[in-house]
Amino acid sequence: MIGPRWLVPLAVAGALVVLLPLAGLVSRVGWSEFGTSVTAPASLEALALSLRTATIATLLVIVLGIPLGFALRAMRGPWRALVRAIVLVPLVLPPVVGGLALLYAFGRRGLLGDALGGSLAFTTAAVVLAQTFVALPFMVVSVESALAQRSGRHEAVAGTLGASRTRILFRVTLPALGPALATGAVLAFARALGEFGATLTFAGSLAGVTRTAPLEIYLARETDPAQAAALSLVLVALAVAVVAIAYRPGSRR
């Protein structure tokens, strides 16, 4: 598809909005001490924590988001719109508000504080929970819209061939949803990796426990700007790599 010519300057402006800050970031990296900045214990610890928590959060998002997508698809009438709006709230909520909400639910005096036998807040689990909270909608939306494009014909035929619903799910539906699941998982991972506001509010910033890479960057930006820039660049590279490898919306069957 080819648009009119006047789209070109707008597209260039759009690209600049993204590129200029990245260029600014790169200009601040002290290349001579890039290696030492990134391999500083604090940096490595934060990066490792980020990768670990974002991976677990992505797995949680897959396990919980797929059933939610199916549930949304199965609903009829006004319920679907209402439930969808609620499930998508983390997408539009300011992360700080999300963090507060998590605190009121899972914190020491939160709704579930007693049931959990104490507080989840300010633990690594809280980091994972905050990341799952903000990343879940990406998977739900992906799964729901991919399901909406399916006629259900393959599933029906699989049924006439004697397959149980579980078998149909794992052998027919999920493989067909592959590209949508990959998209949802990648977007969720990227979102979890960049999570800041909800994590800071709900999990705090304890070195090695809840201080993920974005929090480390935020802390280091005044004391050691070069380290902050170096770590930022690593996060950017990581995000670009993951998206480039796994996010191909055009290749959907």
């Binding site: 014909r153 393959h154 029906a156 035929v157 493989p175």
Partner: peptide
């Protein structure tokens, strides 16, 4: 068993 007009083979 049903053989539908569109064959409906599993593409994956």
């Amino acid at each position: 068993a049903l053989l539908s007009q569109d064959d409906a083979l599993f593409p994956t």
